[in-house]
Design a binder for these strands. Structure first.
Lengths: 341, 341
DNA sequence: ATTCGAATTGCAATCGATTGCATTAATAAA
DNA sequence: TTTATTAATGCAATCGATTGCAATTCGAAT
C-alpha cells in the first residue's frame, strides 16, 4: 500500500490556479493577500486535508520552534515540576519541548548537547549534572548564539540567564525559625558543596546562627549525599554527639524524613526534643507524621519563568541581551516537625 | 554581527575538490566510499567544525528520529517515571523525545496531536486525558501509518500496541487482601469509568468480592475524580452509610490518603476499624502514618517497554504489525493501613 | 482614456542533505 | 593490449515552504 501522499501548498495552488507563494502567504495570514483569496485558500486547504510540513518550513526558516531541556533526572518531583512549567508556557507560545535526562553523567550531557545542536533547537534550558565540571559542550551554544538558560544547578562561569531559588535565604529562614522555636543548638545535615545550591543553603544556615548569636560548630554540620540512608547515618552521628543538638536543618526533605523516622524509633520526640526543618517541600512532607516543616521552591513557576526568558531571548536574537540572574523567593512552610506549642 | 555560517557538506566538498554526495556518504559510513577518502573527509569535517544539519536531513528523508509523548500531566510520579523510561530507551536508540501535557483537556490534546503531526514525529506515545471520548485527533496518525502506542490510559477502539498494568488483577489482589484481613464489607472509592484503568480496577474488586462470597453493594462504590477532596467527600459519605464498610479499596493513593486523614480526624482507627488499600505506590504512601498498602505499577519499566515497541514499529514501517496488548504485572505492597495484627 | 500608486499575485531561487543513475577509475581476466 | 567487471565517485534532481523582487491588477485621479 503506497502511503497516501500528503497535500502540499503546491497541490492547493494547482487546484486553485494560483501560485504556491500566495498559498503560503495566505496560510500564514500575511496581510499582503486579499481577504477573499485568503478565505478561499483556507477553505480548500481544509477540504484537501492539508497539514503543513513543519519540517520543510523549519528547514527553510532555520527555526524549529523547539526548546531543548536537559535535566539530571525527569522522574524527580522538583524537576518534573519545572518541566511542567516550561511546557506550559512553551506550548502557549507555540514551542515544542524536547526533554533529555543526563542521569548526572557528563558524557551523556555532552552527547545530548550535540544532538540538540544538530537538531537546531532554538534554545536550551539546562540544570547541570553532578559530574559537570567542564563546559565545552555548553560553549557549543554560546558560540553560535543559541540562547541558553540555566536553572537551579547553574554554571557561574558562563554568561547566560540563570534562574535559581534563594537557597541562602531558605537556609537562613529555616534556621532562624528553629531558633525562634527555642532551639539553642542547631545542627545541619548538608549536601555536597560542589553544587552551588547546597553551599548557599549552608551559608544561610551559618549566617542565621551568627545573627542569632549562636556559635557555628563544624562538628554538627554533616556533609552527605542527601539520600535516605545518608540521613539516617547523619542523624545517628548527631545523636551520639556529646553535645546533642536540639534542632536540625536538613538540606532536603529526604534526610529530614529519615531523621524523623530514626528519632521516633529511638524515642526522641519531634519536635519537642529535636525540631526539624527540611528543604524542597516534597509531596510527602505534608502528609507524613509529624508533617515536615520545609522550604518551598516554586518549581512550576520557575519553569514558567525559565521558558519566558528563553523565548524572549529567542525572539530577540539580534539584540544584545543583558543577562540576569533571577532569584526565586522561597517560602518557609511551618508544619509539625518544628512547631513547639 | 552576522552569524558565523555553519559549514555544510558542500563546504567540505569544495575544500577537498570532491562531490557533496561523496561527503554525505562518507559521513554516513556508506560502504561505497573507499576508506581512504572517507577518513580524509571525516578529518576535514572535524577540522572545519562541521555539525550536520539534522533539519535538512530530516526534511529530505522524511524522518525526524523524534518520538512524541502526550501525557495528562508531566508532574505526576507515575507519568514522570514512564517518561523517564521512555527517554532512557529512546536515547539509546538515537531518538529524541518531545513531551507535551494535555492537562486532561481534550482541546489541548487535539492541538498537540496536530502539532506533533505537523512536526512529522516518527511515532507517538500517548496516555489519554480524562475528557477524551472522541478520537479523531488520533486517527490522524493511524490513517497515515504513523506508529501510535498507548500506555495506561488506552483507547480500546483503536488498533495499536497497548501497554497497561494489570489493573484488574491489581484491584483483585487489593480486595482479596482486605478480605483476607477479615474485612466483611469492602467499599470502593472508584475513578471515572470512561477510563479503562478505573473500570478494570473496579471489575477486579467486584470479582474478588464474588470469589469471596461477598455481595456487591453498589451503594458503597463511590465514583469520583480521585483528587484529594474527592476522597474526603467519598469517605464521609461511606462513613455515614447506615451499614458502614470495614475496609476500602481506593482506586488511587491520593484518595486512600485523604480517607485515612479523615478517619483519623474522626477517631476511627486505621486499619482496625477500617482497613485501606490504595493504588499506584506514590512516594508518599510508604512514609505516611500509617503507611499505605498499595499496588505498585512499574512506571519506568513500562516506559522502556513502550519505547521499545514504538521504535520497533518505526523501524519496520512497511511490515504489517500484529498489534499486541502488553499487560505489566502489578505487585501488592502490604503496609500498615491494611495489616490487622 | 491615461496615468499613477497601491494593492495583490506570481516567479524563481533557496535552504542542506540525500539518492538514483551515470560516469570514471581501478582491477582482473582474456 | 584489450575487454569485462567491479569499485568509487560525480551529477543533478528532489523534498516543501519561504521570500525578495518583478509583474500584474485595480481604482481613483487627472
Amino acid at each position: 500500500m503506497s502511503q497516501k501522499q500528503e497535500t502540499t501548498i503546491h497541490d492547493i495552488a494547482k487546484k486553485l490556479n494560483i501560485a504556491a507563494s500566495t498559498v503560503s502567504r495566505a496560510l500564514n495570514d500575511n496581510p499582503l493577500i486579499s481577504e477573499s483569496t485568503s478565505k478561499k485558500i483556507k477553505k480548500t486547504a481544509k477540504e484537501m486535508g492539508y497539514r503543513p510540513n513543519t519540517m520543510a518550513a523549519n528547514f527553510r526558516t532555520k527555526r524549529t520552534n523547539t526548546i531543548g531541556v536537559i535535566v539530571p533526572l525527569i522522574n524527580r518531583h522538583f524537576f518534573s515540576s519545572v518541566i511542567s512549567g516550561i511546557e506550559d508556557i512553551a506550548y502557549q507560545q507555540g514551542f515544542a519541548v524536547t526533554i533529555s535526562q543526563s542521569n548526572d553523567k557528563l558524557e551523556k550531557e555532552d552527547k545530548i548537547a550535540h544532538s540538540l545542536f544538530s537538531n537546531r533547537v532554538d534554545g536550551v534550558i539546562i540544570s547541570i549534572g553532578m559530574e559537570t565540571k567542564s563546559f565545552d559542550h555548553l560553549k557549543l551554544f554560546s558560540e553560535r548564539k543559541i540562547p541558553l538558560v540555566f536553572f537551579d544547578r547553574i554554571v557561574e562561569e558562563i554568561k547566560a540567564h540563570k534562574i535559581v531559588v534563594n537557597d541562602f535565604n531558605g537556609g537562613y529562614k529555616a534556621t532562624k525559625h528553629l531558633v525562634g522555636q527555642g532551639a539553642k543548638r542547631v545542627a545541619h545535615i548538608a549536601g555536597p558543596l560542589n553544587l552551588n545550591i547546597y553551599k548557599k543553603r549552608q551559608e544561610g544556615y551559618c549566617q542565621a546562627l551568627k545573627d542569632s548569636g549562636l556559635e557555628i560548630d563544624e562538628s554538627i554540620i554533616i556533609h552527605t549525599n542527601l539520600r535516605r540512608e545518608d540521613g539516617t547515618r547523619a542523624i545517628k552521628k548527631l545523636m551520639q554527639h556529646k553535645k546533642r543538638p536540639d534542632a536540625i536543618f536538613c538540606a532536603n526533605d529526604t534526610t529530614a524524613l529519615s531523621s524523623i523516622i530514626y528519632l521516633q524509633k529511638n524515642g526522641i520526640k519531634v519536635p519537642d526534643d529535636v525540631a526539624i526543618v527540611g528543604f524542597s517541600n516534597e509531596p510527602f512532607s505534608e502528609v507524613v507524621t509529624p508533617s515536615i516543616s520545609t522550604i518551598r521552591q516554586p518549581g512550576f513557576t520557575m519553569g514558567q519563568k525559565t521558558a519566558e526568558l528563553i523565548i524572549n531571548q529567542i525572539n530577540n536574537r539580534n539584540l544584545e541581551t543583558e543577562f540576569e540572574t533571577i532569584t526565586m523567593p522561597t517560602e518557609l512552610i511551618i508544619r509539625n516537625s518544628s512547631k513547639r506549642n
